[in-house]
Nucleic acid binder design. Structure first.
Lengths: 143, 143
DNA sequence: TCTTTTCTTTACGCTAACGTAAGCTTTGGC
DNA sequence: GCCAAAGCTTACGTTAGCGTAAAGAAAAGA
């Protein structure tokens, strides 16, 4: 009773279009089975789709993701050369992720900065209001 | 004696092309001063460029980055409405970064997984070799 | 001063990742 | 059994982010 999914079910679940899913298939990232012409997606297919989307959020191109999939698929039967290449690539990906972590940390600092500046500007505005400095107020408190 | 940079200096430093830098200017993300026709980049321009590139690594489109720049530039003179909008957007960006952190964590787990599988396959290969199971070896130890 | 870089603008080209439309088949609900 | 909804293929269109080439001006080194 292995659960399956239709293309629109997956599209709804992940909030993407069926066009995208078919496009990923054309790009060699998915290969669902068929009942007649209709695509039937297994749980494994669903996992792959999830990985594709996560890759996208991490800035991977579809080609890169495909490369990873292909490597992964050939890992168990790979030669020693292949396996060592795979390990190198894994290390490269790790390095990329480390870079992203650093970037995120810096970005967060800048957001802190921006937020502080924003709040300062806000309180300054409120101060002006309270001291009767308003220019464009509709209802000045005294006049 | 405020330090300045030429376009090719920046291109070299950040390992991008001058074409890209000019493109960012066309997109409204940079506006270096000029000496005659020649572009002169200040330290501030350099910082902006750095931010653009970091944004790219985090998957921001140039349009998004421009939006952030524009908001930032208008922050000090912004209305209360504007400032509150800015705070909202900042929070959205934070949420995006949190999502990315989660994605990176998951990706790292999968890399661990892949690496383990790889190493297993490798040691298995070595074991076969040692027990004389090789098929494609050039110099079998006995024959 | 001459020549070789480095800079400029203009403009067409290209790839990735889909969007969108046309036209046809299949399937689920009444 | 019928019809709308969902599925399919084919194919052209679109946007972002540059690459690349042409043709000329300015700056820097010999």
């Amino acid at each position: 009773m292995t659960k399956t999914y239709t293309i629109s079910e997956l599209a709804n679940e992940f909030d993407i279009t069926v066009r995208s899913i078919r496009f990923y298939e054309d790009s060699g990232l998915l290969s669902p089975s068929r009942r007649g012409q209709t695509r039937i997606y297994s749980r494994k297919d669903r996992v792959r789709l999830k990985l594709i989307l996560r890759g996208k959020r991490l800035g991977f191109s579809l080609a890169e993701t495909k490369e990873l999939f292909d490597l992964w698929d050939n890992t168990s039967q790979g030669s020693e050369q292949q396996l060592k290449l795979m390990l190198e690539i894994i290390e490269q990906k790790r390095e990329g992720l480390r870079q992203q972590l650093s970037d995120i940390a810096m970005a967060n600092l800048e957001l802190d900065n921006a937020e502080a500046r924003c709040r300062d500007a806000l309180t300054e505005l409120v101060d002006k209001k309270q001291s009767g400095w308003e220019k464009t107020e509709k209802e000045p408190s005294s006049r």
